[in-house]
């Protein structure tokens, strides 16, 4: 009971503090914004711990942060090996291949009405394939190691990127196109100087969607056969062993990697599309 009341009190207190912080002059500085977010995160953890202890939730249903934290610290080598296997080998390589393929395919589709009529529906079709149906087949084709996981990721990220990129390439302003025509610019010139830059905001939108999809795909694909390392393997195995602390430790790593990947893409985006209205400060 004391945990329950305590957790709620901490929550209310932190809430009030955060409201004052956010309204104050300090809250408008960079450090202030960081402090507000950090306080919010800590409050969530305290509330979680308090509820788990106060309501005596079995650690098999939901372990508290005080159990998960030490588990993360104690299993760093395992978590690192899983991270390398799933994120670096599976998700990132698949992400890179899928992105490159979609990039090239989008330019080809944009260039040729024939491909536009043929390739786009196929891309649409492939994206509608359920991952639970696809993953076992790809494991059969590409083996148990990370190659089959990368293949799943390629299929998952290809379509969102393709659609965004195709839309981006068609998003040029008629006036700009006229200008290019008066310069009698060649196709490569028009592509490099006008259409690709114009497509970049769309492309990065697609990348952000694909980044999370890549991680989901790489983890879920491991449920259908894998070596004995990897985040998906860890989650499914530890659930079976009722090692929920390890499951949550892996989830934490997955969430961190997903956020980092997203942040990295957003950073590159702000450098590449600095001219776009959405990037104005």
């Amino acid at each position: 009971m004391i945990w329950l009341v305590g957790a709620v009190l901490v929550w209310l207190g932190a809430w009030a503090l955060n409201v004052r912080l956010a309204a104050s002059a300090f809250g408008r500085t960079r450090a202030g914004r960081l402090a507000v977010a950090t306080l919010f995160g800590i409050t969530l953890l305290v509330l979680w711990e308090g509820l788990v202890r106060g309501l005596a939730v079995s650690p098999i249903i939901l372990p508290g942060p005080s159990v998960i934290g030490p588990k993360i610290a104690a299993s760093l080598p395992t978590l690192w090996a899983d991270f390398v296997q799933t994120v670096v080998k599976g998700a990132l390589s698949g992400f890179a291949i899928g992105t490159a393929a979609a990039f090239v395919a989008a330019i080809a589709i944009d260039r040729s009405p024939f491909l536009q009529k043929g390739l786009l529906p196929i891309g649409n079709f492939v994206s509608a394939l359920p991952i639970v149906g696809l993953a076992p087949v790809l494991v059969m084709w590409f083996g148990f190691d990370w190659h089959s996981k990368a293949a799943v990721v390629v299929v998952m990220v290809f379509f969102p990127l393709l659609v965004n990129m195709v839309a981006g390439l068609q998003a040029t302003d008629p006036l700009h196109r006229d200008l290019m025509a008066t310069y009698s610019a060649s196709y490569p010139q028009r592509l490099m100087k006008l259409r690709l830059p114009a497509a970049m905001p769309f492309f990065f939108n697609g990348l952000k969607i694909a980044a999370t999809l890549a991680l989901i795909g790489a983890i879920v694909a491991e449920f259908f056969g894998s070596p004995i390392v990897g985040m998906g393997f860890r989650i499914s195995t530890e659930v079976g062993r009722l090692g929920l602390d390890m499951v949550w430790a892996t989830i934490a790593v997955a969430a961190l990697s997903g956020s980092a990947l997203y942040g990295l893409i957003a950073l590159i985006e702000s450098r590449v599309t600095f001219w776009h209205p959405s990037q104005r400060k």
Binding site: P136, V139, G143, F144, F224, G225, S226, P227, I228
Partner: peptide, 25 residues
């Protein structure tokens, strides 16, 4: 040993089917 080191065995997490044997994986 099961960690893939020399002299041990390599363990695969098998799906709940027999494809791994049929495919000679």
């Amino acid at each position: 040993n099961t960690d893939g080191a020399e002299g041990g065995v390599t363990v695969l997490k098998q799906a709940f089917n027999v494809d791994a044997l049929l495919q000679k994986q």
